[in-house]
């Protein structure tokens, strides 16, 4: 085990403990936000219910199958909102206020530091809610997913989180150039929202964007297909390849952004 790895593991533990201490400062908020999370989850299911009140199948997806996509989307969103977004919002804020300078002065990888600065533990409620949706969906389908498919889905989950994180890093990197980007994170959130629908319902430009530019298909539809046992090997390879490509791109962009920031900031 190289010592660098150990050092970063220790760092991660420290950052996590600070984040949870912070979150626990507001225990009442914790419960309140949990309740709110369930309210939101119920609310966002309404369009799906309305659509399937009209049809038994949309673009080849039955109601329980579409629910699997929605459940997977909710799962991914809870991880994103709990573990990725809070930290990266802090970077955007830090660029505006100049507090990022302190991070860059620390003798550790800046991307690592900013990516692990904040967590929102109460997103666990969303996580539980998403699992409830998935269980309900498979009950409607009348069978449980095969263990091999679940294992494959976990791999794709890891890739999807990596993808999301990479896109977020790209967004944050962009914020070094365009400073007032509080909006940029809203844009990210609003685009991600489309991931609750199977990619097949989209045609033309939207489909292209959600497959290659902002690859929602790789993040929600394909993993859902895996759980349903319908994903081909080629598609799975596409997901993994896409994930790795975005990660590399994000790292490059981050390097470039830091270079720009340190050379241009006054």
């Amino acid at each position: 085990m190289p010592p660098v790895f150990l050092r970063y593991a220790r760092l991660l533990r420290t950052q996590l403990s600070i984040a949870s201490t912070l979150a626990m400062q507001y225990r009442f908020d914790f419960v309140l936000k949990g309740v709110m999370a369930l309210f939101w989850m119920a609310l966002t299911m309404v369009p799906l219910l309305v659509v399937y009140a009209q049809r038994t199948s949309v673009a080849g997806w039955t109601y329980p199958e579409a629910l699997v996509v929605l459940g997977w989307f909710a799962l991914l969103k809870s991880i994103l909102d709990g573990g990725v977004t809070p930290s990266l919002n802090m970077v955007v804020e830090g660029i505006r206020t100049g507090a990022l300078d302190f991070v860059l002065l620390k003798p550790a990888d800046a991307q690592f530091l900013v990516s692990t600065a904040r967590f929102e533990p109460w997103r666990i409620f969303d996580l539980i809610g998403s699992l409830v949706i998935l269980v309900y969906a498979f009950r409607r389908l009348g069978h449980a997913p095969a263990p091999a498919h679940v294992a494959a889905a976990f791999v794709l989950l890891a890739v999807a989180v990596l993808l999301l994180y990479s896109i977020w890093i790209l967004v944050v990197s962009a914020s070094f150039w365009v400073v007032r980007v509080d909006n940029l994170s809203y844009l990210f959130g609003s685009l991600f929202d489309a991931g609750r629908w199977p990619i097949d319902v989209f045609k033309g430009a939207l489909r292209f964007v959600f497959t290659f530019v902002f690859p929602l298909a790789l993040m929600t539809t394909y993993p859902a297909l895996t759980l349903l046992g319908k994903l081909t090997f080629g598609s799975a390879a596409l997901v993994v390849g896409g994930g790795l490509a975005f990660t590399a791109l994000a790292r490059l962009a981050w390097r470039g952004a830091i270079g720009f920031y340190t050379s241009a900031s006054s």
């Binding site: 049809r55 980007v181 844009l187």
Partner: peptide, 26 residues
């Protein structure tokens, strides 16, 4: 620039449009 990003953030109607036109295909 910020304004344009805000406009792009209002993309939900387009997604819903895509969804409902798929539903109304048959």
């Amino acid at each position: 620039a910020e304004f344009l990003i805000w406009v792009l953030t209002t993309n939900m109607p387009l997604v819903m449009m895509g969804l409902w036109t798929a539903v109304a295909a048959d």
